[in-house]
Design a protein around this nucleic acid. Sequence first.
DNA 1: GAGAGAATAGAACGACCGTACTATTCTGTC
DNA 2: GACAGAATAGTACGGTCGTTCTATTCTCTC
Lengths: 208, 208
Amino acid sequence: MVGTRNQTTVLKTKGERTRHSILTRAAELATQEGLEPLSIGRLAEAAQLSKSGLFAHFGSKEELQLATVDHAAALFREEVIDPAREAPRGLPRVWALCDHMVDYAERQVFPGGCFFAATSAEFNHRPGPVRDRIEAMIRSWLSYLEHAVEQAQDAGELSRETSARTIAFQLDAFAQSANSQFQLFRDPTVFDEARRAIRERLESLRPA
Amino acid sequence: MVGTRNQTTVLKTKGERTRHSILTRAAELATQEGLEPLSIGRLAEAAQLSKSGLFAHFGSKEELQLATVDHAAALFREEVIDPAREAPRGLPRVWALCDHMVDYAERQVFPGGCFFAATSAEFNHRPGPVRDRIEAMIRSWLSYLEHAVEQAQDAGELSRETSARTIAFQLDAFAQSANSQFQLFRDPTVFDEARRAIRERLESLRPA
DNA sequence: GAGAGAATAGAACGACCGTACTATTCTGTC
DNA sequence: GACAGAATAGTACGGTCGTTCTATTCTCTC
């Protein structure tokens, strides 16, 4: 996981390298232990740094959390959005987006499942910049999915009887549900359930 | 909310009454602040008790958490399961279950949305009796929904081409997604999206 | 390779955590 | 209405938290 990032992101100085590895560990641990309960001492231990050495990179816990969210967002884009953009506009890209989303949960890019599913539940009722950034990221994901659906409708590949927003809501619901049920029950067949539900829903929306 | 419970559950001694009101506050706060980060001091303040006075009711934080989960489960049954049992077996009951589930999220029976959606995300990666009890409760909800779908299939009201498990997965996904999206975006129209998705999915499963 | 500045470590702080122990007040029963 | 026991409060403890300050080590540039 780190390898992929290091290839795309050039990390010149030593500070940038350790900062990057801290954030990778932070995003991983946040999906398991939570972003708020993840303490600086605990993270320093995991990153093999002293507490104060790690702290100096961010200046406050909130800045660390914001940087972690940004780091996770970049990874999400690399793993879900960017690969889907290789599929042609329209229905293929809608399917690619959903499929990569389910894959991303299934492959456990983050050990505790989707980073944003985990942290949004946690920060729902904690107003502040961290919550705002998580919300913005999820909003942009849903908008992008809805936009892809609109393109498929424009191409005549999906019916216009159901709005793009409604379709995006339903597709996302299947992917989200697979993620959360897997984290709870550890039954990998939920991913097949999700893919199947998404595929059949898309097929049912094909114009006559 | 307290009133409803007090009618159904007889609380004889003073201890039982304060214990009950503590658990009501605990379940409410847990959906907003989290079950683990909700500290005993914080809860004591909310319940207008001394820290040690509250603590004596449970003996440990874990026992408090277990009691809170049980309390929330009883409330969930009262608000979702029991009312749905008044609908006749088969498709009406499937619809009633889903509709009451969405209602329960929409009416904010708990201020932070569905108690089990909030706490399961939090305890996914915290092995122990609390996690076990949350998991068991969600499992029983999904089983019950699946069972209701089977009854509708037995009555010939839903097609057998799709398995009851798959149908239950999809219906639950819509309700869960509405809950979590509302907590994040505060847009109440997601509940209509969910009800609509559930209704149309059920209709599409009517035998020819 | 020397020197400036970045990067890391160490120690200490006040605050809050869960818990234990003791003391006090209140409740329900005879 | 007294009295036993339940219910609540008060206080203190060790531990961890985020943060600060100072000291040391390392890195990169000239």
